[in-house]
Nucleic acid binder design. Structure first.
Lengths: 328, 328
DNA sequence: TCAAAAGTGTTATCCTTACACCCATGT
DNA sequence: ACATGGGTGTAAGGATAACACTTTTGA
């Protein structure tokens, strides 16, 4: 028995804090205190309705307190209530409902406060190696993931009860098989399919039997604690989608940048290669940026013109974003 | 003092349950028990993590228990935690966090169970008269809403602190002024602007002073209890958007229907008139439907071919929906 | 025979995609 | 001089928007 009554439900805010550094997208991983069991975790804080009027205010407050980071853009993703996915078997604590948030920030100049708390940015493709198509089609797909998923899907075209589509059809759609194109926005659907097939560690940890009779299964990407990899998948998917109709990239860019740097950032997030000329035309015709007049010789070759984001676009165009178009 | 410890936070699930009847979109309004103060409310139920594994299961359960209705499609909308918007001044109960859900259903043949509970479907444009552009531009806009909002926006082009855009710019974008087109998906943005300006009753009820010095302000649409009109606005916006890339309309249609009936339903939801020929071509070229062979003479005039939804499209096309295009 | 609603064919226009080529700098 | 990355023009193809017109029924 406790002195204070234990609340039945606790609201937790979990943040996927994104920054892009050196053409690689990163997310903030919480300090060691949250890393028991060797499983990294996203920054997490309980929501106290008495201290903070809204979720967003609460989130900004504890992110800054925990990491010294002032995040810019913040957006709610989804609220997860799956019991089996958060608590362990035999767990008796309060039921935790986690509200996932996406936050964007520029990479901080001095990471002092970050280091002090043990928090650090990590490449997000460590957690989703099959999502990075910038170079070539990721080898892990054909070498590991697809054979296992094909086996799981079997040869049945029959839909399962409660599901409109068969395993096979879902596999085709999520992973772009048999004529379907790869859709970089289906990050969550792909992760959920792997979870359902028992191929990600989180699924086995949550008590789901591996659907395949195997002595050992390969590790598909670095797992995260609780349902944090699912939240990260949601965050990546949302960011990849939002890029196309809202000027959110600029939250991740420095004040001034070259068009190539902008393209590299968009490519890093969307995980695919883009057509240079069309990208430039798109950006300039949408009037998203304006030249500062300066040039940069940082990369070698012909100096590049330096641009800045035109904040006024939000007032002019109804949906200013970067419609990436078909293929690079 | 209570025998049982009172939980600090309670999770409430609030459902916007949509059906289309007679070319009019409706939402389910809860029975009289929830209608004290004369303010209608959406169906609402607390989430009990011990009884239900996920939010969605919990939602389906109490919706059926309360109204006898079996909903088909269910989708989470947003989680609202705004204290000022849910509890009254002086309220001391548990803090309620409401998770909004969108649910689609066909209009039930026999409304017995509905009537028994006092729940009833009501036209959703009663709550948002300015969102129905099917006939003409709604008169309430030019006669009431825009003059008041213009006054609120004043003549300042200055952005407010913490806001990237000026009141005037936001007004222009949300309500399609000065060259900007009317975007039927901005339902929530428009409602929030009216709330901020103190022009909807909910704002005044929540303790927000009317921003305009007026003896009396006109009633803009029927208010709902708590933050339910905000949840409804979110639901309408989401549904209007989703229509364009997922075949969700068919959740609202009977098994068999004519193309005109389908068009009327899409128009009812999106609140705008569509071009007949292009709509038909779109639907048929997307292979969303197939003819049953039968014809219907229900409407007078030449008999219409009867169609049914082709469920297989979900397996074929990556994003089967109805891209409505520019204007009707 | 006429009104009402269903259904078809065709054209102009814009946007996307792709290709080919020229420019400016450092080594 | 040449490699490297920056920057521009223009044509082909497809999707969309808009038009006019024919067909089939009931009253």
């Amino acid at each position: 028995m406790h002195d204070k009554p234990q609340p039945l439900i606790e609201i937790g805010l979990t943040a996927a804090i994104v920054a892009v550094e050196g053409d690689e997208p990163h997310i903030l991983i919480a300090g060691d205190s949250a890393r028991q069991d060797g499983q990294p975790a996203l920054p997490y804080g309980p929501f106290d309705p008495l201290a903070h009027r809204t979720f967003e205010i609460g989130l900004r407050a504890w992110v800054e307190a925990q990491t010294g980071l002032r995040v810019g853009y913040v957006e709610q993703l989804y609220t997860f209530g799956d019991r089996g996915r958060h608590s362990r078997p035999g767990d008796t604590g309060p039921h935790v409902v986690s509200i996932g948030y996406l936050a964007l920030t520029r990479v901080p100049d001095k990471a002092d406060t970050l280091e002090a708390t043990g928090a650090a940015f990590e490449r997000w493709y460590r957690f989703f190696p099959w999502e990075d198509w910038r170079g070539a089609r990721p080898r892990i797909l054909d070498e590991t993931i697809l054979p296992l998923l094909e086996e799981w899907a079997g040869h049945s075209e029959q839909a399962e009860p409660g599901r409109p589509l068969s395993r096979r059809a879902r596999l085709r759609l999520c992973f772009g098989l048999g004529g379907s194109p790869w859709d970089e926005e289906k990050v969550l659907e792909r992760y959920e399919l792997l979870y359902e097939a028992g191929l990600v560690e989180e699924a086995r940890r949550d008590g789901r039997e591996a659907a395949l009779a195997r002595a050992s299964l390969p590790k598909l990407g670095q797992p995260l604690r609780f349902d944090h990899r699912r939240i990260l998948a949601t965050a990546i998917a949302r960011l990849r989608a939002k890029l196309k109709y809202r000027p959110v990239v600029f939250e991740l860019m420095p004040e001034e940048f070259t068009l190539t740097a902008l393209q590299r950032t968009v490519e890093a997030i969307s995980g695919r290669h883009l057509h240079k000329q069309n990208f430039r035309r798109l950006v300039e015709s949408a009037a998203l940026v304006e030249p500062t007049g300066a040039t940069s010789t940082a990369t070698g070759g012909r100096p590049a013109a330096v641009y800045r984001f035109r904040r006024e676009v939000s007032e002019e165009r109804p949906a200013p974003g970067l419609r990436l178009g078909g293929r690079g």
